[in-house]
Design a protein around this nucleic acid. Structure first.
Lengths: 354, 354
DNA sequence: CCGGGCCGGGGAAGGGCTTTCTCTGCGGTA
DNA sequence: TACCGCAGAGAAAGCCCTTCCCCGGCCCGG
């Protein structure tokens, strides 16, 4: 690789001058030398060594984000928001996928610290795991102690700047929505119990049902992976155990899509026999059939806000921005049927399917 | 930030020894010093400066990939394959989104070069743009000249190692499939004409139709963005101009989903009135309604192969791996209806919709 | 008893860049 | 004419780490 001194030598100037031309330093350089340098750069196809630059420069320009999985639309949207603000401020964004592995998450914090990023953003649910939380907070504290900035999205456990989607309120909206439609036999297709996002949404849902005197027994909540196939599995388990359900709450849209797939495979009409409601409102939600009723979270906005917090010098007190959830009514929910709606697969005859 | 010399000082050893302990060098260090160093590392929460390490070490460990957009499932799948192989070989993957902007793509090549990556992988369609192609090849050549490795996915323009999905054969499969089902009035919802992926698929389609004596007039091909909304727009234009179409070919699945959405909004039954076929087989294809018939490309495999090529020292001759396409029949295609199937929105009376 | 070889450890030279400081030479002012 | 100041260029000191090379002990063999 050509180096700066190669360029300088070829242009017949000192490395200092070459550097000044290349970086557009404030220090003036005569037009002639400037041109000689630029010509040398072009001829040698010179590209500065980014690592050497970072080492020599004082201020850090990159920002890191740790998500569960960018190819999950939920994080893809958040990342879009992060990216937008980062780019606006001339910063590079490094994306790390933890694939929901807490250990990997810890490793990535170290990695990003080693990369000298200006800020670390943690997106995605936290874990109910005291040891992990302590370890993570230690690492983050160490990072912050050396001037690093930290912002989190949707995590209670960190005490600094945070953007919080109102998962609990969203859960309440789901409960209210279904209650109004007359549903009383409600099953929940939930993500891993260890994720705070799961429990927050569930808590909200329970709260609103409780307000109407309904309870949500444990056997009507099935935990599985937070993805399409998890949704299929949990829905199947739910229906097998309790064929009388009239509504299924999926705690995210991916699972809801799995639920729809399973219901279709069992020829259960949605929403005539069973209503399905999701959570997040990812873009594909409007394109499945029936179009998915869901709780919308302002994902892009969440990303953008988090990046702004991370790049802002930071107030003394931690800033927490709570972003509201709202119901988006589409075609997968409807009034509860009046008769037992789901026939067990084996059963062949009987009951009109009004 | 604590530095290596901080650690060394605290442990009462030289930086050289500290470095050896931390990196597990082959040079032996007595147990006592080793422990002192490790304790100091823990106490100071020391993390090596990755940039300094890269500068000091000779060999490059990171690999860069430039995709159009990772949040597009097509690239998400490819990236998954890349990632898997990279991780297996202990390498870090840096992902860059060009958002289909050729200039940004050029910039990212420079950026990755500056980052001293061991290899650059270009995923996603090339462009019909001679100037851009020349510029890109120059930059890549310069990179390769300094020992960098390059592999491309689905691009003809680069002469080195490549993984090529067989887009043209895939196009032919689409044509054959629809012809067999009796479709003669076929419209194409195409991506930007400037992308080679678009033209390759189109060429294949034309070939197979021509083999049956059919032609594909220009007005039955509508170009738009390669995404859902592009699919909506192009399908609308197609149907408005030519209500007699019995089949719509979308040149990728995102556009196909847009096509389905538009058809649904116009109450056109799929596949009874109009068949829809996509391309790529992204995961969501099976979950839309009707489930999408499409041409499957082994996306993850493509990524994995490309990374293997990139990390392999490389033969003298460029290696090109062509991966086959195959039709996945689902529910969005069916026999062509016998009577004119689509009534213009405005028209109210007439023709039975058998 | 002395010299060579080996082992554990440190000194110091980079690696490529930025930036401060220094130096030169010029123009302007008294 | 003498001096001051400044613009423009270069020398060199880092930034933090790795690794080559060397050094001092020790053990062993001659």
């Amino acid at each position: 690789m050509a180096t700066l001194s190669d360029v300088a030598r070829r242009a017949g100037v000192s490395p200092a001058t070459a550097s000044r031309v290349i970086n557009g330093s404030s220090k003036p350089v005569t037009e002639e030398l400037r041109e000689r340098v630029l010509r040398a750069v072009a001829e040698l196809q010179y590209v500065p060594n980014a690592h050497a630059q970072l080492l020599a420069r004082s201020h850090r320009v990159a920002v890191g984000v740790i998500v569960h999985d960018v190819s999950d639309p939920y994080f893809a949207e958040i990342t879009r928001g992060l990216q937008r603000v980062a780019t606006d401020q001339g910063r590079l964004l490094t994306i790390c996928n933890s694939y929901r592995d807490p250990d990997r998450e810890l490793e990535y914090v170290e990695l990003l610290r080693g990369q000298q990023v200006a800020a670390i953003i943690l997106a995605g649910s936290g874990y109910h795991d005291a040891t992990f939380t302590r370890l993570l907070n230690e690492k983050l504290a160490a990072y912050e102690a050396t001037g690093g900035r930290v912002a989190v999205i949707g995590r209670h456990e960190h005490s600094g700047d945070a953007v919080m989607p109102d998962n609990r309120a969203g859960g309440r909206l789901v409960g209210a929505e279904l209650y109004e439609l007359g549903h009383r036999a409600i099953g929940v297709v939930a993500g891993p119990a260890v994720l705070t996002t799961t429990t927050d949404r569930l808590t909200g849902l329970r709260e609103s049902l409780a307000a109407h005197g309904l309870s949500l027994p444990e056997h009507r909540v099935r935990h599985a992976e937070f993805d399409r196939d998890g949704g299929v599995a949990a829905t199947a388990a739910l229906l097998d155990a309790d064929p009388g359900l009239t509504a299924i709450v999926a705690l995210n849209d991916s699972m809801a899509i799995g639920a729809l797939a399973l219901l279709r495979s069992r020829s259960v009409a949605v929403p005539r026999q069973v209503s399905v409601i999701g959570f997040d409102d990812m873009p594909i939600a409007r394109d499945v059939t029936p179009a998915l009723t869901t709780v919308r979270l302002p994902l892009v906005e969440m990303g953008a806000r988090a990046m702004s917090l991370a790049l802002d010098p930071g107030a003394a007190a931690p800033r927490v921005e709570v972003l509201p959830a709202e119901v988006v009514r589409r075609d997968s929910t409807g009034p509860a049927p009046e008769v037992a709606p789901v026939r067990p697969r084996a059963a062949g005859s009987g009951a009109s399917a009004g």
